[in-house]
Design a protein around this nucleic acid. Sequence first.
DNA 1: GGGCTGGTGTTACCGGCGGTAACATCGCCG
DNA 2: CGGCGATGTTACCGCCGGTAACACCAGCCC
Lengths: 221, 221
Amino acid sequence: MPSAAPANPGEPRREQLLNAADRVIRRDGPAASMNAIAAEAGITKPILYRHFGDRNGLIRALTERHTRSLLAAVRAALTEPLERRDRVEHVLDTYLAGIEARPQVYRLLTHPEPGDPGGAGNALAPALRQIAEEITGAVRSQVDLGPDRDLLAEAWGRGITGMVLAAGDWWLESRPCSRPRMVQALADLLWGRLAAAADLPTAVPPTAPAPDPAAPASDPR
Amino acid sequence: MPSAAPANPGEPRREQLLNAADRVIRRDGPAASMNAIAAEAGITKPILYRHFGDRNGLIRALTERHTRSLLAAVRAALTEPLERRDRVEHVLDTYLAGIEARPQVYRLLTHPEPGDPGGAGNALAPALRQIAEEITGAVRSQVDLGPDRDLLAEAWGRGITGMVLAAGDWWLESRPCSRPRMVQALADLLWGRLAAAADLPTAVPPTAPAPDPAAPASDPR
DNA sequence: GGGCTGGTGTTACCGGCGGTAACATCGCCG
DNA sequence: CGGCGATGTTACCGCCGGTAACACCAGCCC
């Protein structure tokens, strides 16, 4: 059931309001106003505020619903019993498939409104922070990185998440290629193809004309 | 054509207003109001609107000023006559040094306010989009990537930028290590260390969560 | 029944936001 | 002198997030 799953029928009115908010945000984007959401639900603003406190509370409740499925999918992909390269590709594909299925929702999850001025400027929205933590945990528990493993796992978790966020955003926007190809491109980057590829004949030598040794261009797949 | 004017002193009033806006944003963060900026400049709102059209115009002019130096530094680092790994490290260090020097300004550049609903939700702020384009160009012109070079260069440009953005954000916020170490961590990621590292003994067998500790770790290689 | 409580709903308002219209000055230059 | 283009003002608009104050209706216990 990859669709928007109702979280908890314990509070049916709340779920109903969240569904209305979902519809409006799907239509108008993440900047939808509280008035618009209330109108879509057939009610007026104060009820929303009674249920969710403030706008952030509504957005948070909304994102938590959608985050669950994506996060669960990513987590499952991260522990799939595959060769590491295949596992990584599986995770990448899972994320891209998720954002492809519901772009507006994905925008809400990944690019929330400014929010509270208290927290410092996090690049990663809460949903992505959770994904980053999943990756960090997976790397730390699955890959032998020596004494720096804690630092590397944390830095890589954030870095990989940001990489996939930015690249996925661009891919979703301009659709330069199919999804599997995009997965390949990103996995190649993670697999050090940037390091392994040969130099191109220097078109603009800054100081010295190139004395290049030969480096083999191998795809380590 | 009242297009983006350069930062030359040909329009001293404009520069003066931008300086005031700079001060306010440094103090109050990127969400500073137009009233506050006008007050800091000792004037009132309509003058700001005469000069910059709307809030986005002001922010754009402001970011363009700051972007120039960072972008120039990154561009220079991208064409440094070094071994590729050293060049990459140099670029990473340049970016991290830039955001370390002026965190508030960096936040303005990398995490702008929502902006117009017309454009689709870009993950990358304009300044970062430019950096991504620089990386794309450098990769395309320096690295031999075969027939897919255009796609790979573009995807990697965005991906690397997003990676450094997210990781740099985290680093700046929690300062888990020194700058050179962070540069190493990110360069290692780009250099395929994730692919090259050995597996760790599987602590969590993915299929059977049974409390049976006698399950032997299968060797996937 | 009476009264209490709790959820649902309303209208009307607040301060602040981005943005604009209309009007008042200056200095400069033909 | 007259115009003209910057500079500046006050006062306003519509919308926003958020809040008071009040009304209604169920159930539920005494």
